[in-house]
Each structure stands twice: as structure tokens, then as C-alpha cells.
Amino acid sequence: MGDGLVLGLSLIVGVVTLLPFWKSTIWWVRVTEFPRIQWAVLALVLGCSWPWTGWPLAVKAVAGLGMLACLIYQGWRIFPFTPLARKQVLSAKHPRPSDELTLFVANVLMTNRAVDRLLALIRRYDPDLILLVETDAWWTNQVQQALAKAYSFSVLQPQRNTYGMALFSKLTLLGPEVRFLIEEDVPSIRTRVLLRNGVPVWFYGVHPRPPVPTEDPTSTARDAELLVVGREVKAIREPVIVAGDLNDVAWSSTTRLFQHISGLLDPRRGRGFFNTYHARWPFLRWPLDHVFHSKHFWLRRLRRLPYWGSDHFPVLITLQFAPEAGQVQEEPEASREEQREASEKIATARSDSAPQAAVSFSAGSAGVAGVRAVRSSA
């Protein structure tokens, strides 16, 4: 590796390590948080390369220490998601099928047509609940026709802008809604799911717009949608699950703020990265697809499923409802500063948005029946 290349790459690693400290919502600042694993590996390689360059000793020492500092910081941010860290969610000791819920989450990639491979995965793992995002009319029709017999309840919001959503359930859905919380063309799903033991669980499906030039030049709308959901679930004392493609990584400042505002737990902590994107690029992967839940659950199973045709890997998780879990699992808490930050982010996003519509669905045994739109202030 040439001396000039080592210097140039070291400067890049230093800049991208420092940029997230800037609270700006500009897309090129926020996306530097995504590849923290890659930045850490690059910092390690560069740190080992500096002694062999022809630069003066003082330059080598400063640059080498700089790369060590970058490695330590990036490693500190991703460490909670390694098996060496403490688990935030404890494992269930014994199976209790009536208390369990298995959830399958997948971004289908709207232009992808490998529906048969997706359906094969669903049939293999037989989940109770399926959340699909990026579903247009074609995807909705294909999956609904295949799953209608096994999954009696569904909430369908096909869209052509890659933000369509579909929820299929074997379990009874109570009062499901499709809502547009921040942006008029980005839906989310809210419903209660009745477990086999009769306990109702709140379920939120989300897929906010990512901060990339082709979608949104800032993370304002994405951050606000997550924080609106976070504040809402914090006020719920019943069991809660929030899942979907959040277009944010597990170790970002926004995801940490969401956890503190919502009080929800991350079952990946202490278990692994579970990188779900990009499925076709092994060296550029990070965890974009998430499942968070309240302290009322133990974890029975968490898996990243095989590649099937999308640019995202699916996630499969089985949670076990256990009232005693809430007594030993500590939920995150937001500081006053974090509450203030969340309020500012939500207010900024809402000041840029027109009033949105919340569309309510009543799900019957044959699926969704009845639609009404309710205007709500932003």
C-alpha cells in the first residue's frame, strides 16, 4: 500500500469517525454511522500499515495513534452487538407454545420477482406473523393468493414508491390501522395481536424513508417517525413489538435515542450483528432490519435467514411472553436532554409536513374488511 494512499485513507477514516458527533441531519453525515464495522477494520489495517511507510517518525506516531483511537471508538460503538457483550434480552429456558409469537420480517425489493423463493422460506419456518415491506400491487396479490388459507388476517397497503407494506397473521388482529405519521406517502401499520394464550400484544410495522440523495437529503423525517412511534409505545403498559426496515443501523445515535425514548429492548445486543443489507455485497453489510420489543418477553429464537433474491436478508424471531421477564429486564430510559432532542426532531419534521391521514382497517376472518380515513393534525 503506497504512502500517499495510507495517508489519504487515514484522513477519510478520521473524518468519518468524527462526523457523527455533528448532530446535523444531512444525509452524508448520518450515513457515516452505517459502516462502523468496515471503518473499524480499515482503521486496524491502516494502523498496522503506518510503521512500514516512509513518512517521518513523528507523522507515523501521530497517524498510528489516530487510527488506534478510531479503532477503539468504532469498536466501542459496535461492541454491544457482539457475543462478548451483555445480553439485553434473556433467553427463554423452556418452550411455551401458547405464549410464543414467531415473526418473519422481509424487505422484498419491489422490482424483485422471486416470490416463489420467499414463499418457500415462509412455508419452511411457518411464522405466526409476516411483515413485508416494499410491496406493490404485484407483490401484494402474489403473496395474498398464496397465503390466504393459512393466514386469515391481513393488512395490505400496496404502493408504487417502494414504501408499500403487507402484514399477514395467523393470530387474530384487533383494530389494525395503516397510518401516515410524518409523510403522506410513507405508511406504517399499528395493530394489536391476540396471542394463543389470550394476551393482546401491540405490533408496529415501520419503514421510514432513508437519508440518501435519491430519497431524502436529510434524516429528519426518518428520525421523527421513529421517535413518534417511540413516544407512543412508551405510554403503553401492555406488551409491544416494533419491527421493520428502519433504514438505520443498530448502533446509530438515532436508534439509541429511539430505544431510550420507547423503552424497548434489542434482542441482538450480546448476540451478534445480524447484518441484513446488502444481501449481495458481503463486504458492505449492516443491520437495517430490526425487531424491538418491550420487557415482557424472553427470546426463544433469532435468525437471519438465507438469501432468496432481495437485497435484504429476512429476519425470523420467536418471542415468548412472560410476565416475570419485566421484573429482571431493565428497559432503557431517556434523559431530559434526549427528551428535548426528540421533541425538536418531531417538531422540525411536522413543521415541514402537511396534515396526514390515518387509515383504519377492520380485519375480519377473511382479511381486511372496511376502510375509513381519519384526518389528523401533524
Rank of each mutant, 00 (worst) to 15 (best):
M1P: 12
V6P: 01
S10R: 11
G14W: 06
V16E: 02
P20G: 05
W28G: 14
W39E: 06
L42S: 03
V45M: 12
G47W: 12
P56H: 14
G64E: 04
G66W: 06
I72R: 02
P83F: 00
L84W: 14
R86L: 09
L90M: 15
P95R: 09
T102E: 15
V105A: 10
L109R: 14
L109V: 11
D116E: 09
A120Y: 02
R123T: 04
P127L: 07
D136W: 01
V143L: 11
L147Y: 10
A150M: 12
A150C: 05
Y151I: 13
F153P: 09
V155W: 01
L156Q: 07
R160D: 14
N161Y: 09
T162Q: 09
T162F: 06
M165L: 15
P176N: 08
E177M: 10
V178N: 00
V178S: 00
F180R: 10
I182Q: 08
R192I: 09
L195K: 04
V206R: 00
R209C: 10
P210S: 12
S219D: 02
E225S: 11
L226V: 09
V228L: 14
E232H: 07
P239Y: 10
W251N: 08
S253Y: 11
T255A: 15
I261V: 08
S262V: 00
R269C: 08
F273I: 02
A279C: 05
W281Q: 13
R285A: 07
P287D: 01
H296E: 14
L299E: 13
L305T: 09
Y307G: 05
Y307E: 11
P314Q: 13
V315S: 02
L316F: 08
I317Y: 05
I317T: 11
F321Y: 12
G326L: 01
Q327P: 10
R336K: 09
R340F: 11
E344I: 11
A347E: 15
T348Q: 11
D352R: 14
A357E: 08
V359T: 07
A363R: 08
A366Y: 09
A369H: 12
G370I: 02
S377M: 10
